[in-house]
Design a protein around this nucleic acid. Structure first.
Lengths: 211, 211
DNA sequence: AACTATTTTAAACACTTGTTTAAAACACAT
DNA sequence: ATGTGTTTTAAACAAGTGTTTAAAATAGTT
């Protein structure tokens, strides 16, 4: 009999939640199995080991992370508008998956990385032609000439950090979850304005804003 | 007989390294004691438990983190120059303590936070008068009027993220440790220029640059 | 209904965990 | 040298870890 939600996916869903919230070292196989509502042995029946299960979860997380960043760049907008849309999408995506950036950064730093090859994901980014497109725009004088690493950092920093540091910021400014979330929308606008002004200094005032 | 380095401090030093690199859940008491070159029981002889030891390490880390941010603001520079100096110091400090931001953000998210009260550290920041000084500068038209949370986020994002995401960025752009480190200096200049241009739009071109 | 293959479980495995205990090593005053 | 208080160790504790085993429950076929 086919079930509406297969056991295998119940495990993956539970593992995703637990791993994201506590990291690989911060949780046990039993905790995951309990979250999925079943026996421990079943987890190892479907996935050989905790490491193997983690590997799958991490790789799909990476996939989501990278994919969300690249969808914008296939459109035929101007580079400046692509940037605006990108920031908008990134804030939206990360608001739905707030643990993702810390999870990826933390687990990339782990020595025993469950033998995960990160390179393949990064190759996808390079293969998408994003970097070439930016370099081209720089050559044509449409974009400020800073190196691509710095460009990546500017965007990633201002999109990801506000999500990552939520608890820290709430502590510093003594504000509630709701207040922080609404302030994040204002901040997104500030970030967009700052980045566009900096990266497109000439035509930033005349270009049409995002709807 | 007094020793040059007391056992207690040997433990703290080892614990600092191991906790920072692997987090609370990612390491064992025995790993710490081994890194300090001694028996496990000694760790619990000086510090009652793993949690207690962690609490001390975390609190001093927080102390460092907060202190490094506040030293600039006691000087009598202009607000714009303070900002430039702040960014400079923050990059320098974080380059020496690269694991600090991820460590703090991660451990602040932990449910079992070893019963650490974070509030006292944040109170120090507010008590320093930084926020008031910025609000004043905004009233006097010396600084762009954005809310203080957004201001904090802009600065923290652009200073901390480039350090936190080192491995991720190296992967994406396929560059070595050395290349990343040197690129970080260029990036610091870009960040400074972008932030100053955005926060001090009127007088940013005429004000004297940092030596 | 009886057989087969798949899915799920309880129980056990060897090992690591944080913590404690009791004895040993040490420093130092008398 | 003896006694005293401190520092360090080896060994043990119960509880929790990842993983495996063998039996039970279930589904599907004849």
């Amino acid at each position: 009999m086919k079930k509406d939600v297969t056991t295998e996916e119940k495990i993956k869903e539970a593992a995703r939640h637990v791993f994201m919230a506590k990291g690989f070292a911060g949780c046990s196989s039993r905790e995951i199995s309990k979250a999925a509502g079943m026996n421990v042995a079943l987890v190892n029946y479907y996935f050989r080991s905790k490491s193997q299960l983690f590997k799958i979860i991490f790789e799909t997380a990476m996939e989501d992370f990278v994919t969300s960043m690249m969808t914008v760049f296939s459109s035929d907008q101007s580079i400046e508008n692509k940037m605006r849309i990108f920031i908008d999408r990134e804030f939206e995506f990360l608001s739905k998956h707030p643990e993702l950036p810390v999870f990826i950064i933390t687990e990339m730093n782990r020595e025993e990385g469950c033998s995960i090859d990160h390179a393949c994901f990064f190759e996808k980014i390079a293969a998408s032609g994003i970097f070439n497109e930016c370099a081209q725009a720089q050559l044509e004088g449409k974009m400020r000439k800073i190196n691509i690493l710095s460009l990546t950092l500017l965007i990633m920093s201002n999109c990801q950090y506000p999500i990552m540091a939520k608890n820290l910021m709430q502590g510093i400014h003594g504000i509630s979850h709701e207040d922080y979330t609404s302030n994040l929308l204002l901040h997104k606008q500030n970030v967009t304005e700052m980045l566009v002004n900096y990266l497109f200094p000439i035509n930033s005032k005349t270009t049409n804003k995002l709807k």
